[in-house]
Design a protein around this nucleic acid. Structure first.
Lengths: 106, 106
DNA sequence: TTAATATGCAACTGTATGGTTGCATGTCAA
DNA sequence: TTGACATGCAACCATACAGTTGCATATTAA
């Protein structure tokens, strides 16, 4: 799961996921279009995303088609975020008002 | 939102969130107990979490009480993960079986 | 006031990371 | 077969980052 969090930490990689979500099966070259990065930079990002299993790929001739794999994101949502969904929002709201009352505290 | 993803990328910081989730209002010293890190390392992590608004704190005398703020996590779940929840799992499953059929691709 | 406690700040270090350039490999088309 | 195209690999660079050590500041208690 660490791989997934690490992979998601970078804006460029989240952008790539976003693009693959919008249009699945894009090649490396297609993913590069419109980006400021070099092809090799994109390739490295894709490798990191693939290591985290967030992207799977399929070779077709000299091209490589890339697909978003939402499963790790689902798992994070279920196993990790779910835990914090049950966090006491009301208790925090009360704390926040206390903090706002005496703003000098930082 | 970038701050939040960055903050969540580190295992130690997720551990700290976990501890604050289990027992809210802990001081820096309390959070250090049982960890291998130095106090300053924990302090830095807390600063990063605070920048991302994942942790809010409240000064009480010479102590500083730390609380988990689940709001940014909720926002990520709603605004970001929600988008991928609607990703076509079936299409991917089909792709995966294709990949497994000819494993030499990778 | 003084000592102990709790935290904050700053400088420094090693390593991870994002990015580049250059070249190699593999595949398609003429 | 030859050239163009798509991708892969390796070395290199600058910066970010996690962590440390050392000292400063602020609060409590004797």
């Amino acid at each position: 799961m660490d791989d997934v969090f690490r992979a998601l930490a970078d804006t460029s990689r989240r952008l790539l996921l976003d693009r693959l979500h919008g249009q699945p099966g894009q090649t490396l070259g297609e993913l590069c279009q419109g980006l400021e990065m070099s092809r090799q930079a994109v390739s490295k990002h894709l490798a990191i995303l693939a290591d985290a299993n967030l992207v799977v790929s399929l070779k077709r001739g000299r091209e490589k088609l890339h697909y978003l794999n939402p499963v790790p994101i689902h798992e994070i949502a279920d196993r990790w975020i779910g835990k914090y969904q049950r966090a006491p929002l009301n208790a925090l709201a009360a704390l926040k008002t206390r903090l706002e009352e005496k703003k000098d505290d930082q």
